[in-house]
Design a protein around this nucleic acid. Structure first.
Lengths: 192, 192
DNA sequence: GACAGGCTCCCTACTAGTTGGTAGGTTGGG
DNA sequence: CCCAACCTACCAACTAGTAGGGAGCCTGTC
């Protein structure tokens, strides 16, 4: 049906895999051009400027993530299992894909040099994740499934930070298993 | 005395503050030229290529960090206080400086697009930090000052990841106090 | 049913500015 | 005299972005 948007989607997919490797300034329209098989001028037709492209890319990523979390809420009742599923998702990414990383975690490091609207999208993703984690920890604590060490909010921010830091460590060590080696003990400590 | 190396040092300092804002690909020799007041060709005289510059920069950063940790070992006997000092250092950075970030934590995210020798330096920094933290946690546990939840090694990797993730969160939220808000509860949880 | 208009998509061709890097000359101090 | 430090003057490649044209497709109208 909607084959019209295939090209735009291809461009976004390609840009995402490129941006995940090294951030905003590590890829160019020429890189996308080579992979997608389209001229750089044609990319400008779909996304007038690079900041447009990346803003849309992050907005789409954010929506996917948000939808994924909403689905998790529906399919997985237990808070601890929800955390397992979230971290397990990333562990699978590290096991299966080439250069896995959360788009927003990578871009967060570059915020001082990012276009404002892109930075705003990144910030929104962090808030969404932190809000969700806070809710999970609250419910988990209320149900006696999780053991908090501080408030749900501060623990959520800590889980979020550890998750992102584990991605950095996995990259630094060049060892995909490092992500799970860090986040699994994190889970165990939170589990009541 | 050694005024000869002033320029090279100026270049390194400038490059560090630039790289900390957005990573390897976010700055150019032209940027350094404007700040330091030297032509780009003259920068090449001190550092033939960009990868040379950044490799030396990271090596220097790594030495400073390593020396700082060694000094910490000497001046601060208590393991918990050592952790406090380490995290407190970064908290001060976030309170006082413009765009604070660990050079290596930022570069770690960009490893797939980094020159190999730079990536090796980044990796070495992570190892050094993790080794030191492991030692601190081991001694702290032996002295009953710290309470581990796993092995000293896994806990050390978790502390390291959380610290780096907290830097990312602080940037994402645009809130320097976020770093302390995440790392302080981390300390409290580890303290026996 | 033909056909004109417009729209989307993509192209070639081009731009001005920036990138990292080189060649070769000047200067000043040991 | 030599050498380190710095300069001017380059370079080719690449950067994001623009101008303008052509092919195909839908749509409204006679």
């Amino acid at each position: 049906m909607n084959t019209q948007s295939t090209r735009a989607a291809d461009i976004l997919d390609c840009a995402r895999s490129l941006i995940v490797r090294g951030g905003y300034n590590s890829f160019s329209y020429a890189d996308i051009s080579k992979v997608v098989g389209i001229r750089t001028a044609s990319i400008h037709h779909h996304f007038p400027s690079k900041s447009d492209l990346v803003r849309v890319l992050v907005a789409q990523y954010r929506k996917e993530a948000s939808d994924g979390l909403a689905q998790l809420e529906q399919l997985v009742p237990d808070p601890l299992d929800q955390l397992r599923a979230y971290l397990g998702y990333w562990e699978t990414c590290f096991a299966d894909t080439d250069a896995p990383f959360c788009v927003c975690a990578l871009l967060a490091g570059e915020i001082p040099v990012l276009p404002d609207d892109v930075a705003a999208e990144v910030r929104a993703h962090f808030r969404r994740l932190a809000d969700w984690l806070t809710g999970v920890l609250e419910r988990g604590a209320a149900q006696g499934r999780l053991r908090l060490s501080g408030t749900a909010r501060t623990d959520a921010e800590m889980v979020l930070a550890t998750t992102h830091g584990a991605m950095l460590s996995a990259r630094a060590y060049g060892d995909a298993t490092a992500f799970g080696a860090i986040t699994r003990p994190l889970l165990e400590r939170i589990a009541a």
